[in-house]
Design a protein around this nucleic acid. Structure first.
Length: 470
RNA sequence: GCUCCUUUCGUCUAGAGGCCCAGGACAUAGCCCUCUCAAGGCUGUAACACGGGUUCGAAUCCCGUAAGGAGCGCCA
């Protein structure tokens, strides 16, 4: 069985870069029935925030990337790390280093001056004495020679020389463990078989492999996925894209659309652009992921969101639309909840091909709620002219007499009415639209009227006709 | 500076030596459809970073160069 994990650090907001890594890990386990673990790497207690943890948990839930295990918190595992450190120390695979920060800074500065790669020189590696007044850090004894080969599913084999690696710190002066060490212990303890993470970690991997080896653990398979760049090709920043994943919920995106967009960054399956969750699961393989970073393209996300809006069963969209209507104070369920939701589903069908997000859709739906409607002054001035209002007055009598209140019959009545007046359809439909929706944009007028119902249609027409009458 | 990674239309990508004077998608331009806005359909503009090799033949293999990125922390 394959085991993957998503291990975000709650020092910044979970954004789409992290989400895509999570998605890749999750997908890789779904097809083959593996296990997906969520682990919060919160060892940096200074910079970790509760808010960031909340975003991770809520974001993953919103996206439906539910973990099979966890969330684990590294801060809860400190005793275990201490235990492993003691073991390494006892086995001579780690040692205490009494260097002060000043000493290390000096060492680095000297090396830089000599144009060398800055690294710890191992000066305490073979000492067994101590230095009073200095709380020692614990360093891992990295092999001095040989090579480490990272077998990477996206990059292939990447070779590092051990001479390029130094003895990294695995526990700070205060005894707390550091990232590179915790990851190894966790991945070992949790039986992680596939480490899928951003390629900014590729350089850390050889050290981690050496630690896995020192602990006698099985070395997992790695897959370092490329980063996501901002639309301008620069590193993702707060100005574009590096916002909390929950922002996308607020902006009106469907989780599946966001996931679909992200899965296509660095991965493809023939010429297919639109994937349901199930299709992604069936087609995805981490080994097919590209090596190069890709830029985030908000337009394509928008397009995909609409595609999903148009293809998803309206009943499934209803709860999402309701959340956005609620934000506008428009979600007032009728006593008959089922009827209300059916009504919303019909609205969704009418609106989905002209709105790209749920937020837009909710805003475009204002005139479907409430009795009256506010007229857009410009639209009214242009379309509700005196003769237009006369037409509307006449036509409303036709509507009032219509035996069946259905789009088809409304459509026929409208056609006949316009033909009778020798007018183009637009000459009647557009004033009608303005009178009844307040603006110039809506679904086809027959559908709009059907959804509005006869009562509201007639009262709004009457209101429009009464407008500045005389 | 050193080590590692990356490089096909503006963007996401297809392409694993001849099927490619490079295909699809978003965006963009034009046309069609049309009661508005859309959606949809059709057509167009647009790319193999550069330089050397290898080969009958290279986007695909090799070597350089350039440009980006990452790591080199008692951050994760």
């Amino acid at each position: 069985m394959i085991v993957t994990r998503f291990a975000p650090s709650p020092t910044g907001m979970l954004h789409i870069g992290g989400v895509r890594t999570a998605l890749f890990s999750w997908l890789q386990t779904r097809r083959l029935g593996g296990k997906f673990i969520l682990r919060v790497e919160d060892t940096d207690r200074e910079r970790s925030t509760d808010e960031a943890v909340r975003v991770i948990l809520e974001g993953m839930k919103w996206l439906g990337l539910e973990a099979d295990e966890g969330p684990y918190f590294q801060t809860a595992r400190f005793p275990r790390y201490r235990e492993v450190i003691a073991q390494l120390l006892a086995e001579g695979k780690a040692y205490r280093c009494y260097c002060t920060k000043e000493e290390l800074d000096q060492l680095r500065a000297d090396q830089m001056a000599r144009k060398e790669k800055p690294r710890y020189d191992g000066r305490w590696r073979d000492r067994s004495d101590s230095r009073p007044g200095v709380e020692p850090v614990i360093r891992f004894k990295n092999p001095l020679e040989g090579e480490v080969v990272v077998h990477d599913l996206v990059h292939g084999d990447v070779t590092f020389k051990n001479t390029e690696l130094d003895d990294l710190i695995i526990a700070r002066g205060d005894g707390t463990p550091t990232y590179n060490f915790c990851v190894v212990v966790d991945d070992m303890d949790m039986g992680v078989t596939h480490v899928i993470r951003g390629d900014d970690h590729l350089n850390n991997t050889p050290r981690q492999i050496n630690m896995f080896a020192a602990l006698g653990a099985k070395i997992p398979v790695f897959a370092h996925v490329p980063m996501i760049l901002g639309p301008d090709g620069a590193k993702l920043s707060k100005r574009h894209g590096a916002v909390s994943v929950l922002q996308y919920e607020e902006d009106g995106f469907l989780p599946d659309a966001l996931l679909n967009y992200l899965v296509r960054l660095g991965w493809s399956h023939g010429e297919q652009e639109i994937f349901t969750r199930e299709e992604m699961i069936a087609a995805f393989d981490i080994a097919d992921v590209n090596k190069a970073a890709s830029a985030f393209n908000p337009e394509k996300l928008l397009w995909l969101n609409q595609q999903h809006l148009m293809r998803t069963n309206p009943a499934q969209v209803v709860p999402y639309l309701r959340a956005h209507l609620a934000r506008l104070g428009l979600d007032v369920p009728a006593p008959d909840l089922a009827a209300y939701e059916t009504y919303l589903a019909r609205i969704i069908i009418a609106q989905r091909e002209r709105t790209k997000t749920l937020k837009e859709m909710a805003e475009a739906c204002r005139y479907f709620f409430g009795e009256t409607v506010t007229l857009d002054p410009k639209a009214a001035a242009k379309h509700l002219t005196e003769e237009a209002r006369a037409l509307l007055g006449e036509f409303s009598a036709v509507l009032a007499a219509l035996p069946l209140w259905q789009a088809i019959s409304i459509h026929e009545a409208l056609n006949a009415f316009a033909a009778g007046k020798a007018l183009g359809l637009g000459k009647v439909a557009q004033p009608l639209r303005v009178a009844v929706t307040g603006g110039t944009i809506s679904p086809p007028i027959d559908q709009t009227l059907e959804l509005l119902g006869r009562e509201r249609t007639l009262s709004r027409l009457a209101a429009a006709c009464a407008l500045r009458a005389g």
